[in-house]
Design a protein around this nucleic acid. Structure first.
Length: 302
DNA sequence: AGGGTAACCTGTATGC
DNA sequence: TGCATACAGGTTACCC
């Protein structure tokens, strides 16, 4: 479910809540949340126990939490990197003392029905990984590697830079897209080409640029492909300013709050409503095993 | 080699 | 009410 803006909201929330906290214990309630961690739950629990959170990073839709134990100089040397992917329905929820906000979980409160993992931090803070569909999960990295201008856990070396990164080169990515006969929408969704874009923001960027997503990449001028990538960055920037897109309780920030960009969507989920540019009724078509929402007049196939 | 498809999951909405 | 089907924000392994 979550795309770059939603994952970035989660990253910011984690940064605010768990930085400098010590992981006292990790409990795994459903091992299917560790599909990408081949060493099992005991290994993950043992390796994280006692480490302090040093940084929370993100590339595209991938998050990673760096943690270490304090050295003699007082600074923590990173010993482990906990990679987190939210999949379609994953959430990272902080259980705090709540204050006046009843939407927040209480520390002793019953776990959410789909809590798969809990990390118990110092000061009674708890971090829950909640994931209805189990397409997401936690795993520990086996080391860092340089990829696309940055040190990242080696397991995500195949993930390209996202449009928010300084090294992201829209023109270079556009030239690669130009060489492909695949549908331009599928190219936008290929995380090895440009990361962070999902079904919602692909449809929104295509609507902004008046491009039909079924068109071959090779049929579109490079300048227009560059514009499409820039539009993707812009729509995700706009979404981030609204706290991301949230249709239901499956997407929430770490404190349980929702984002409000759903009200600003122009194409996604607006089937049958008039296009805000031309008034033509928006349509939904199945292709690439997913739904695509677009204006049949602004976004013609040719 | 690139590109399309099935599989991984649970829940909700809809239609008969 | 019961049951079947379709669909949901993602990624990957495996075909051709």
């Amino acid at each position: 479910m979550p795309e770059l803006p939603e994952v970035e909201m989660v990253r910011r929330g984690l940064d605010a809540h768990i930085l400098d906290r010590t992981i006292e214990q990790v409990r795994i309630f459903d091992e299917r949340a560790l599909k990408r961690h081949p060493y099992g739950p005991r290994d993950l629990e043992a390796r994280l126990r006692g480490l302090k959170v040093v940084a929370v990073d993100r590339r595209g839709k991938f998050l990673w939490i760096s943690a270490g134990s304090p050295s003699s100089s007082g600074e923590s040397v990173v010993e482990e990197q906990l990679m987190v992917h939210l999949g379609m329905s994953g959430q990272m929820l902080i259980a705090t003392d709540g204050g006046d906000d009843r939407s927040q979980q209480q520390p002793g409160a019953a776990l959410h029905r789909h809590t798969r993992i809990s990390a118990y931090l110092d000061d009674g803070l708890r971090l829950d990984f909640v994931d209805q569909r189990l397409f997401g999960g936690w795993s520990l990295s086996e080391g860092e590697v340089e990829a696309h201008g940055r040190l990242v856990p080696r397991e995500m070396a195949h993930i390209a830079a996202d449009p928010f990164e300084a090294v992201f080169d829209a023109g270079a990515v556009a030239r690669r897209m130009k060489r492909s006969r695949a549908a331009v929408k599928s190219l936008l969704l290929q995380q090895g080409l440009v990361s962070g874009i999902g079904n919602i923001y692909a449809d929104e960027a295509l609507w902004r640029m008046k491009i039909n997503g079924a068109r071959e990449g090779a049929s579109i001028p490079v300048t227009k492909l560059t514009g499409l990538l820039n539009a993707s960055r812009e729509v995700m920037t706009d979404a981030l300013a609204e706290g991301g897109t949230s249709f239901d309780s499956l997407y929430r920030h770490v404190n349980g709050e929702s984002g409000y960009f759903a009200r600003s969507l122009q194409a996604y989920g607006r089937t049958g409503e008039p296009c805000s540019r031309c008034g033509t009724l928006l349509v939904k078509e199945q292709f690439m095993n997913r739904s695509s929402h677009f204006c049949p007049r602004c976004q013609r196939r040719r």
